[in-house]
Every structure is written in structure tokens, then in C-alpha cells.
Design a protein around this nucleic acid. Structure first.
Lengths: 188, 188, 188, 188
DNA sequence: TATGAATGAGCATTCATTCAT
DNA sequence: TATGAATGAATGCTCATTCAT
């Protein structure tokens, strides 16, 4: 077994951070390599190409969300408590990296050519399924699905304004109206 | 009177289109110049730098919105009619340039360093003021402001999903629930 | 009219020399640019790519042969005199650039993928046509064609041995037997 | 006794093939290693360096020629029969590897710096000695030597044209005139 | 107003090679 | 004997920008 100086996970973590903060195109392999603590060639040895690294980072990010954020949905507490916990956990990510906003939303809007579309869709589907399941404890299936959809849309729009103004009130207002909305009938 | 080959406005129009479709960083001066029908040096002669061109494009975009989209608010018809007209006019832009989404949202999320934040804030403020004024015909001032805010957030989130899936149903569903929402009490 | 520091012809001349001496793959843009007296980006500004430069160099080499070597065929003197003059003029090129051999033969054998095959075929055809025409002054058309073909084959084989041994006797022996061969019947 | 996955000879065979097809500079250690079925480091473990591998390949190629091609000279049949057999055996090699031509000629013309000159000279000397000996059965020593020399030169020139045009008629015409030439007096 | 030449920094990627295991 | 990790230099090429004309 050869010497491993830098674990792949550490590379993914630092790369995620950089992509989040600076965007895909605007982050160079040099910066990625410096942050990971090895040379450019070493990075490519592990991931083949910058795009390959990005794919791995997206998968890593999805896994991170799954185990650290979305898992809350299957925990204890009322629906409102669990939903609040999920959203606030997400806000920690959103505020990281110089207020970088939502990593996945950034990537969706930047990489319009669709090179990473599959991975990004995967993220959305997992998020949506989890929250829909959570809301289905209280609402009929169809309504739960629509509510989860609207929360997601509201969330991404709010994060965009947070990123523009660097003002967290856009995030807290979002949580307030989301939780309050649970007690309001939905017209659809 | 010498021949005018390329008017500044034509340059701004083609540049807007390119920035919209490909993003700021991912669009090169070469591409911008080709699209505008003059040399790179000619472009820079007019706008000083790529960033200078971008600033001008943002101003041009705001002006475009003002005269072509937001002006509808001060036209004739019911509130619902005028709001629908505004949103559908925006969708034309959103679907342009290979389904490029919202130019302003793209720029907000891509150019995280804030170099163009001022112009982008300017766009949001103008949009928000106009729609707030429109809704104030029917709702109290504070409620009108909150409703305009929520529509904007919902709009940007929906556009993001449209861009991810290249599916216009995300846009039509947004209009439906926005118009329907005008008849529903707002809890805030 | 902008300032021209380096004429395209000067670039082609220095590049030809380098490709001749070191081969296509083994010559870097850096070396080419240094030899031409401008930066890598300046080189590419003129020729688009390394392959584009190579194409231009091949055309330049063909033109050089046409005006400086093959033109002798339409000059004065006996057939033997003109043929000798042509071959000896070629030897000057062959011995240039550290005994680099025949530029065209080198490129044919190195760039086997056929990227430059068209230009190289062009060279051979022009050479062949010229020498065939020269020999047709003395021999029937078909025989002239066959003799030109054999001279070319013999020439390239001889140059290869010259390059291997760095010994010009391979070239002088080739001229001797070629000229002597003009007085010998051809069996074919 | 441990399992032998890759014999050195198998490595040399696959490497020969690659160098033949793609040239020395244009073949990477990665490709060599992939073709040989082991890692880059494994290859270097056996041969020290890429150049070391090349030296071994040249020796292997010479040995191959000796036992598989030139040995025919000491077999049975008329001189013309044996010479034809040798040349046609060579053509099989020439047409291998995507019509790669003569491996040794390619290397002579590509590696102009002379790093492998010794090995390549070795090949030529062995070929020349063998064919000279064969022809000495019919011609005086000096004439046999000259005839062998001319056949070699003619051969390499013909292979070059074959490689340029991917047309085997250049090879068959060469054999025809070589065999016919055995019955024609030589002027030298 | 607009050009084409030129630049220097930076890009992602490939290279042969080293080394601990 | 053979591996995978890692490296540093070099590759062809693109970038925004400058400048004389």
C-alpha cells in the first residue's frame, strides 16, 4: 500500500469550498491544488480532469447533504421542528465561503451547458423526495409534493437575494414564512 | 458624416446576448468582438475593459427592462392582467439564448466577488419598486411590498429550475400560482 | 498600417529550420517563438496553431523548392547539367540544420497520421512533374516518368543513409549513379 | 516460483509496435505501459527509462530481423527466390501498425539527435552484410556489396512513398525491379 | 473610430521520472 | 517484481490588455 499524503476526501472538501466560493470556471487547477496541498498533476492523477474533479465534488456534496442535512427528516420532533432544522443547517452552508450562497444553485446557473446537469438534478431530486416524504406525514401526497416544490423554489430565490445583499434576513424571513405556511391552506 | 458601422447599442445588444448565454467569465472578448462585428481593440476602445463593457450591458439591460417590461405596470388593464403581461414578457427573455434563464440572476450567482453588485442591486430595486407600486393599487403599502418581494423570490427560484430542466412548466406554474395568490390573503 | 516587427516570411524561415532540425513533435512553440523573435502568443496570432504554422511552413518550403531548385529544370545546359544542378542544390538543404536530411521525407515519416499528408504529396508531385518534364527532353514520356520516379526513390533512400552516418559520400554516390544512369538503357 | 504476468519479451513486442506506429517522441510511457499490461513504474523498473526501453526495443527488432527475415538468406532456393522472400517478409512488417513503414527508417529520421544512432547503424550493417553475402554467390565481392547497398537505398525510398500514399504498389514495383535488376549488368 | 500586431500571465493537461511500499 | 501517489517541468493554447498606426 503506497503512501497517502492527502486523502481524496480532504481534496474534495477543499475543492468544494473553492468551487462554492469562486465558481467552476473561475477556479483554477492551481488554486485547487494549492488548497488541497498537492501539485496540479497530483490532483489530475486522482480525478482525471478538472471536470472529473467537479463531478466527484458534486457527488461528495450530495452525500454530505444526505447524511448531514436531509437525514434530519427521519429524526425526531414535529414536522415544523425538523423542517426548521433542515433549513437552518442549509443556511450554515449558504453562509460559508464568503457568503457563497447555494453551491448547487450556483453551479446550475453557471454551468449552463449541462455538463454537470445530471449530478445537479440528482441533488434536487433527493432534496425534493426527502422533504416531500416529511410533509406527507401531515398533508395528502399530492399536496406534500407541491409544498416541497414551493419551498425549494422559495429557498433558492431567497438565497439569491442573500448572496446579492449579503444580508441574512432574506434567509430568516424565508424560514418564518415557510414554517407559518405549514398552518395555512394551500391553493393549487 | 462618416459611416457608422456598429452603433454602441448594437454592441451592447450582442454582448448582452452572449453574457446571458455563456456567463461573464466564460465569454471572451474575442467572442464579444466577433458578435459585435469589430475587433477586440475596437470593443475596448468603446468600453475601456471587459468589466466596463459588462457594466454598460447591465445598464442597458436595466433600461431595456424599464421601457419594454416594467412600463407595462403603468398601462391599462386589471392588476392581474398587467402582472401577467410583465411576467410573460420576462419569460421571453428567460427562454432566449439557449434557455439561458434570468440574465441578472445568472450574474448575481456567478460574479460572487461583487464587482457588479451595484448594477444588479439597481435592477432588483427598480423591479421591486415597480411591482410594489402596481400591487399597491389593490393592497396596503406594506402588504404590497411583501407580495412583490415574494413574487420576485418565487420568480428567480422558478427560473433556476427552468434552467436546470429546460422545462417551461416551471415558468407557467409560477404565473398560475402568482395570479391565484392575488386573491388569497397573505400571512406575514 | 500597424507596426510589423517580424515579417511572416522570417517566421516561416526560422520555423522551417527548426522543424527540419528537430522534427515536428519535438519542436515546441516556445522554441519556435524564440527563434522567430516574438512570444508564443504572437506566433499563434499569425498562424492560429502549431499545426497551422506547420502547414504554412510546408507551403513555404514548396515555394522555396519551386523558385530556387526546380526552376533550374527550365534553364540552360544539357539535361545532365541541369539535373546535377538540381540535385546538388537539394544537397545544400539536406546538409543544413545539423545534417537534418530532407525536410519533406522527415515529415512524411514522422507525421504518419496524415495531418500534413496533402502538403507533402503536393511537394512530391511538383518535384516529380518537373523532373519528368526535364527527362522527357531525352526519353519517351513513359520512360521519363519511370526514371524520375526512380531518381526520387533513390534520392530519399540516400538522404536517409546520409542522415544516419552524417557522411556526404552517400549523396555524391547518388549523383554519380544518377547521371551515369542517363546513358544506360532502362529495363521496366 | 512466482507468477510471471508480463514477460520482458511481451513488453518489447508491444512497445515495438507502438513506437513503430506512432514514433518515439509521440508515444508516451502511459501508452507503452497500458499496451504492456503493467504500470508506468513497472516499465521503468525493467528498462530504467524510456530511452532504455527504446534501446532494448531496437535490439529486439534487430534480433527479430536476424532470426525471422535475414535467416532466409542462408536457406534454400535460388538467389532471386531467397531475395524475394526476404523482401516480402519485410513488407509484412512495413504494412503492420497502420502502414507504419520501416521501423528503423522512421527512427533514423525522427531521432535526429543520434541518441539511438548506434543501434540503428547496427541494423543497417547486419542487413547489408547478409544481403551482400547472398549476392556474392552470383557476383564479384565488390559488385555484390554495391548491389546490396543500392537495394537498401531503393527499399527505404520505396517504403517512404508507400507510407505517404498508403499504396502497396510502391513496394511491389520495388521487388519487381530489384529481381529484374539481378539479370542486368551494373554500371558503377 | 478602429485596426492588427504583440505581450505576459494564466489556462488545463501531459510528460518522464521518483519513491515508499 | 510491481504498484499508485506524487512531482516539476513543459506542452499547446487562450486570455484581457496595450500600443503604434
Amino acid at each position: 500500500m503506497p503512501t497517502i499524503k492527502t486523502t481524496p476526501e480532504a481534496i474534495l472538501r477543499s475543492s468544494w469550498s473553492l468551487f462554492h466560493e469562486r465558481g467552476y470556471k473561475n477556479t483554477s487547477l492551481q488554486q485547487l491544488a494549492d488548497a488541497a496541498g498537492l501539485g496540479k498533476a497530483g490532483l489530475l492523477h486522482h480525478f482525471g480532469s478538472k471536470a472529473g474533479l467537479m463531478h466527484a465534488v458534486i457527488e461528495y456534496g450530495i452525500e454530505w447533504y444526505r447524511t448531514r442535512v436531509l437525514s434530519i427528516a427521519r429524526g425526531e420532533g414535529t414536522i415544523a421542528e425538523r423542517l426548521t432544522a433542515i433549513l437552518e443547517r442549509q443556511f450554515q452552508l449558504v453562509q460559508l465561503n464568503d457568503g457563497g450562497g447555494c453551491f448547487f444553485a450556483n453551479m446550475i446557473l453557471e454551468t449552463g451547458d449541462g455538463a454537470f446537469a445530471e449530478g445537479l438534478v440528482h441533488f434536487y431530486k433527493e432534496w425534493n423526495t426527502t422533504v416531500t416524504t416529511l410533509l406527507a406525514e401531515k398533508f395528502p401526497a399530492e399536496e406534500a409534493k407541491e409544498r416541497a416544490y414551493r419551498i425549494f423554489v422559495d429557498y433558492e430565490g431567497s438565497v439569491m437575494l442573500f448572496k446579492l445583499y449579503k444580508d441574512t434576513s432574506h434567509l430568516t424571513r424565508f424560514v418564518s414564512r415557510t414554517i407559518a405556511g405549514l398552518e395555512t391552506p394551500l391553493n393549487f
